[in-house]
């Protein structure tokens, strides 16, 4: 029991060691400006990773989140210019949730493999974004409403609103997963789909719902990014899906489903973001950064396998 607990803390220990090493190598890491940058960068990925954790616990996989970020950012900006801030934000989140619903239905009703399904929607949605925007940023000539832009800049208690949002989501959705009947059904479905079905869980609905969470949260991340970039960018969110999946796996969620915790995925996000940030500060060549990050992902997955073996 105690060893299980210790093994479960490996991601946190990795994060702390990583932070300490980078702080020693480059004092700039701990400067308030840099730390606030790290937090804001992590904020957007965290929102995506939370949704991804839902899908992965439920036994699925979602590659389309990066494209959803771009779609929702652009749709949000377009609607906002016509119908105001609230409508824009709602449209951004809703369009993400809709893509998620489509993913969920394709996976459960048509029984297409999640990897292929979301690979398809990833490419398809990105195409739609370019068609919708004519591959131009949105809006082109006039700025987005000031309060929306302020949201991306201003702080509460010295910390960006953009950072408070995922903090609130983390608490609320951790409750949903751990303490509600719905959350239990997500874990059970991912852990053993047939057993969950024979226990009366509507497994198809549960699986589809995880994709809706993931799409909706990616939509929200797109809105947050639009606020920070002060525009909808059709090229936004590229490779976000990979970062988010890597973060969730680094946090110890099982790609076979049934296992994972939101706060651990957030630790995974910080490992990814701080690693990237530290390599930047150390002026490591960007190609070498990719090599390093790729290696870290494989190491994390290998460590996970090793852990599963021993248990």
């Amino acid at each position: 029991m105690r060893r299980d607990f210790l093994v479960g803390q490996i991601p946190l220990v990795t994060l702390i060691v990583l932070g300490v090493v980078i702080a020693i190598l480059t004092p700039r890491f701990l400067s308030p400006l840099n730390l606030s940058n790290v937090l804001v960068q992590a904020a957007v990925i965290t929102v995506i990773a939370i949704g991804m954790t839902f899908v992965i616990i439920g036994g699925g996989f979602d590659l389309s989140v990066g494209s959803i970020v771009a779609l929702s950012g652009c749709v949000c900006a377009m609607v906002m210019m016509e119908a105001g801030i609230a409508a824009g934000v709602a449209a951004g989140v809703a369009v993400g949730a809709l893509v998620g619903l489509a993913n969920g239905l394709i996976v459960t009703v048509l029984k297409v493999n999640p990897f292929i399904t979301t690979l398809g929607t990833m490419v398809l949605v990105r195409g739609v974004v370019f068609l919708l925007t004519g591959s131009q940023q949105v809006p082109i000539d006039q700025p987005l409403p000031q309060p929306f832009i302020d949201f991306g800049i201003e702080r509460f208690l010295g910390i960006h609103y953009l950072v408070w949002l995922p903090v609130a989501l983390l608490f609320a959705l951790s409750w949903v997963l751990a303490r509600t009947p719905y959350g239990r059904s997500v874990y059970a479905t991912g852990g053993n789909r047939e057993a969950a079905y024979l226990s009366g869980i509507r497994v198809d609905r549960v699986v589809a719902s995880t994709y809706v969470w993931c799409g909706g949260l990616a939509g929200l991340a797109g809105v947050m990014l639009a606020s920070r970039l002060q525009s909808g960018q059709p090229t936004a969110g590229e490779f976000y899906e990979l970062t988010a999946i890597a973060a969730v796996v680094l946090g110890g969620a099982s790609l076979y489903g049934g296992e994972g915790k939101l706060y651990k995925s957030v630790i995974g996000v910080f490992i990814m973001v701080i690693l990237g940030n530290g390599l930047n500060l150390l002026n490591v060549d960007s190609y070498w950064q990719r090599v390093a990050i790729g290696a870290v992902i494989i190491l994390a997955a290998a460590a996970d396998r090793l852990r599963a073996h021993r248990a």
Partner: peptide, 18 residues
């Protein structure tokens, strides 16, 4: 077919009774 093996006894027994 009847059990989620990696979950606890409690979680399994509660499952049809959520």
């Amino acid at each position: 077919l009847g059990l989620v093996l990696d979950q606890t006894v409690r979680d399994n027994i509660v499952l049809p009774n959520l």
